[in-house]
Design a binder for these strands. Sequence first.
RNA 1: GGAGGCGUCGCCUAGUCCGGUCUAUGGCGCCGCACUGCUAAUGCGGUUUGGGGCUUCAACCCCAUCGGGAGUUCAAAUCUCCCCGCCUCCGCCA
Length: 421
Amino acid sequence: MLDLKLIRDDPEAVRASQRARQEDPGLVDEVLAADERRRAAIVTFERARAEQKELGRQVAQAQGDEKAALLARTKALSAEVKAADADQAEAGAAFAAAMGRLSNVTEPGVPAGGEEDYTVLEHVGQPREFDFTALDHLELGQRLGAIDTERGAKVSGARFYYLTGVGAQLQLAMLNLAMSQALAAGFVPVVPPVLVKPDAMEGTGFLAQAAENVYHLPEEDLYLVGTSEVPLAAFHMDEVLDAGSLPLRYAGWSTCFRKEAGSYGKDTRGILRVHQFDKIEMFSYVDPADAAAEHLRLLAWEKEMLAKVELPYRVIDVAAGDLGGSAARKYDCEAWVPTQGRYRELTSTSNCTTFQARRLRIRLRDGEGTRPLATLNGTLATTRWIVAILENHQQADGSVVVPAALRPYLGGQEVLKPVTT
RNA sequence: GGAGGCGUCGCCUAGUCCGGUCUAUGGCGCCGCACUGCUAAUGCGGUUUGGGGCUUCAACCCCAUCGGGAGUUCAAAUCUCCCCGCCUCCGCCA
């Protein structure tokens, strides 16, 4: 949710942001009109209500005929108050609905346009030259006895898989490495719930743009989270945090669930795009003035992790139209996937400024009073990284060299060897 | 799944039976002022959150807010219903 004051004071800035996102700039004027209607309804209601209360005080003290006369008046007034209240509630709901559809204002410098309009900020490392025919991650994973998509499909359907043997070990090693790094950086490790109530899912903004990708359990009215960003953001929902306690940094370890609706036929091979995966997610609560700097810190931690697994990658500044509605800016790190001949997203860090905190009613308290704080999130490792690790570190015999940083978490193994030929 | 108890503006708490100056009591904590070599103690005042009016700001005024929602009523912390959470006991269970 945006700051209403900003929309009133500088509606053109919000319209410009909407245009850059390829969303409707007219929504701004809809919000302003709805706000006026709402405020007028509030005034009408409050005036009637104040009169009702005043008369109520008189009724309490009056006796006999005087009381009967007052009651005649207050009865009529009661109906008036009820109608005004309903009108106010309706105007308020319409306003909230319009506000809810407005996306966050993008940060200056964010490239305008859609998915293909990103800016490449830098390349780190060189894609490797192979003097043999590189195998893709699934082929490698099967030879290593690490990935079993056939049984995944048998038991759970398409886009499900088993990680077995060194595959399971590799994932645990990578996530543990990520968690160790987060811990060293001062993050509070968290294992959160992955089923959340509508309030949490809605507050984090995932029932708006990403609703079609969210699993829902209708019987309990609970949602399966697509990222631990949801329970980490909702952790402090409805709270006022002391300014002195910021920044608060959490590292969540969770399984993530995504329906992947609308991606039929895309990335169907292997474990690049799946319904269920595991992830270490960083989440920060900071003073709004510190948000942009924190965003760069999250990016730096992601790069530190990518360096540890020795992958070539590039960093992109995601275009406005490809941002989530809550994000003001997003940086993705994309690793080179040799058999695809292109870069694929491994991490994503978003600065949600005060947008998400407003929806979740999370504020900070300092000497000045209370005001919304800023929230940010970023990926530290996910199951998908296995794709890039296997492919980039494969050898001609189908074995895979383990990056040095991972070895301590893999019982010292230096090379993962095929179990079949 | 069943039975019972509980939920009050940071924390604790009065009020709920029997609806009406509840404009929610008191204590603790915190902030300010006074007194004071300093500290402590004492005294006085302030201290939920959100919204609206008026506005340069502040002050001021108003409305809502007693776990959440709906209802009854001229009037709800108080009465009724539904939901949520916590505690105790029973049942069941990986």
